[in-house]
């Protein structure tokens, strides 16, 4: 099963729509609630990153009986130093975004903690691709 969601850069009112939709699908499939929680945390953080940093993005969620694979692809500034971006507390978010309680430098670490596999590739000035895989019986 494959699901696609568009993400609009800067539109915080819609942040979380993909995570919410995926949560409903996984619930219907009777996936272990603990696994659903992990998937949803990782996906929400990825969604917020696109909203906070990119112009636009697309999320593809591919679900089979053993796992969910999520690809978050955006057109945006890219990440010059991925290792640095992975550090807890490091953030390039604007002050406006921080005032909303985002941009604490916890997004990517949360994604890493809550996915079985996390792969990030980025082209500075073009965009970023984040791939998350989580197994249902992990």
């Amino acid at each position: 099963m494959e699901f696609k969601y568009d993400v609009e850069g800067g539109n915080f009112a819609k942040a979380g729509h993909a995570a919410s939709a995926v949560k409903k699908v996984l619930k219907q499939l009777n996936v272990n609630p603990k696994v659903i929680k992990r998937v949803v945390v990782a996906l929400y953080e990825g969604e917020v990153n696109v909203v906070a940093h990119a112009f636009k993005g697309r999320i593809i969620a591919d679900i089979d009986p053993s796992r969910i694979y999520i690809k978050i692809e955006d057109q945006g500034p890219g990440i010059p130093d991925i290792d640095l971006a992975m550090q807890v507390g490091y953030s390039t978010a604007s002050s406006k975004v921080r005032e909303m309680g985002f941009g604490a430098g916890m997004g990517l670490p949360n994604m890493k903690k809550n996915a079985d596999k996390l792969q990030i590739s980025s082209n500075v000035g073009k965009g970023t691709v984040v791939e998350l895989t989580t197994y249902f019986n992990s």
Partner: peptide, 28 residues
């Protein structure tokens, strides 16, 4: 008041205490 902190560390059934008032609070 940090949304990622709540996302990463809160648990089902807890009462969330915050000064944030915007819509993303409900998403989390």
């Amino acid at each position: 008041d940090l949304l990622s902190d709540v996302m990463g560390n809160s648990e089902e059934g807890q009462v969330w205490i915050t000064l944030q008032t915007h819509k993303n609070v409900m998403a989390v």
